[in-house]
Write a protein that binds this DNA or RNA. Structure first.
Lengths: 243, 243
DNA sequence: CGAATGCTTGAAGCTTATCAAAGCTGGTGG
DNA sequence: CCACCAGCTTTGATAAGCTTCAAGCATTCG
């Protein structure tokens, strides 16, 4: 029970009552393992289930007829996949595993008791959605107005922060990137070739060091400066309904 | 009371009880007029108030030190500005008026009775946030993977649909665009010069006709095809708490 | 009527894409 | 444990799409 991903993640933002915790734990009753590259959800299908991501990384993406691909989101442990699609009749994107993963499926209706019984959890889920929204806006800015160099720095910082936050795979400032350069390119609106050239340049400039698919950020301050990075937005819990 | 923007907009998605309507109307008690280009909210400031947009268009945007600008969202009548920032301590973007506008300010805490008393309205607000989220993902895809030609078509369709939805300023398929070409460029990650050239090309190809800042879409089917446009995502209300 | 703002058009340049080939790496089977 | 293979990364050459700069034109507004 204590090892609930949701309780762990949401608890960091606001205190939860026992009842709240039980509501969350109920969402992680089932469990299913997925292999790397396995598809979780397909565009166009009806959404009947949501998933709590217990371990591993997922991504949602959109494919065009001619093969162009845009990665839209990265999901980390503790995230609800696709909470942000719950309100829609049909999925608009594909979701697949970047690494082997464990997901806890639950029916869409599983959220209803939560909305009905806990205004506080509701506010929290709402806030998480909003925070994600803010992250998307940051990426629009990056893709729309940043150079390739800035974009890659930005992504590395974003992922670094996120991993810090869930202190997974962290170790003296370095982390493992389970993304290929093609993935990075498709996240940032670039090509794999240019991502390669750009990362080499960033490394030569002494901002990062790479070893295999581990990345260490060497000059955090300069990178933050370079892409006007603000860190994760702070959640305001002051307006939340009381426990 | 019947002329509540929120009731009008939200009522299109789900039936509202009288009580729900009253909760919404309460948010539009005050009213303030803004001039074109007037700033509503500034990046970095604490967010104490939200606004119901009663008339006019707003945009939120982000500025970089060197003058680069990225427009992030467009707000139309009936939208809550910035609902999606309520969860954050500080605003991360500026918001200003694209046209003269009327806003109804209300304190952040004004949403509390709504969350506490109406699970149904809560679900609806949540869904609207999610839908907006989906729109943002579409724009990431457009900015990341579309050519300038596709991007402009995409934006025109999106705005056209949105205006249809609120049937404002509509007239035999044409609508007034209160955006300069620089605005369009900053929405789509282009330059004003190239937007001009691209729009001319789109017009020459017979997809649109322009007259001043009115735009008429001539070949809707081809434009939809061209940028894989899906229309507005459908909201699923089936999981909503009952009235 | 003049000033300001926005739109258009052309020329030149730069960032990034595309194409192609070779090097590397990690996983698999013998 | 080694050899192989598939997928990823690197590197170089070339090309395309978009930007930048600049000047002239159109429209709106005081």
């Amino acid at each position: 029970m204590v090892d609930s991903c949701l309780v762990a993640k949401l608890g960091r933002y606001a205190a939860l009552s026992e009842h709240d915790k039980q509501l969350l734990v109920a969402l992680e009753r089932d469990e299913r393992e997925y292999k790397k590259d396995e598809v979780v959800t397909q565009s166009g299908h009806r959404i009947n289930e949501l998933y709590v991501l217990k371990s591993g990384w997922l991504t949602s993406y959109s494919l065009l007829d001619d093969g162009r691909r845009q990665l839209l989101r990265l999901f980390y442990p503790g995230d609800i996949v696709d909470l942000a699609e719950i309100a829609l009749v049909r999925a608009r994107h594909d979701v697949k595993c970047l690494t082997p993963a464990v997901l806890c499926p639950f029916p869409k209706s599983g959220l209803e008791p939560l909305f009905a019984q806990s205004p506080r959890l509701t506010a929290l889920l709402f806030s998480m959605t909003v925070r994600e929204n803010s992250t998307l806006l940051d990426r629009i800015r990056a893709v729309g107005r940043f150079s390739a160099y800035e974009r890659v720095c930005y992504l590395l910082l974003e992922i670094g922060y996120r991993l810090n936050a869930i202190d997974d795979a962290k170790e003296d400032g370095g982390f493992r990137l389970p993304l290929t350069q093609s993935d990075i390119a498709d996240l940032l609106g670039l090509t794999n070739v240019y991502v390669s050239k750009t990362m080499s340049r960033i490394e030569q400039d002494g901002l990062i060091r790479r070893d295999g698919n581990r990345v260490r950020i060497l000059d955090h301050a300069r990178m933050v400066e370079l892409c006007d990075f603000n860190g994760e937005p702070l959640i305001d819990t002051s307006w939340f309904p009381v426990l």
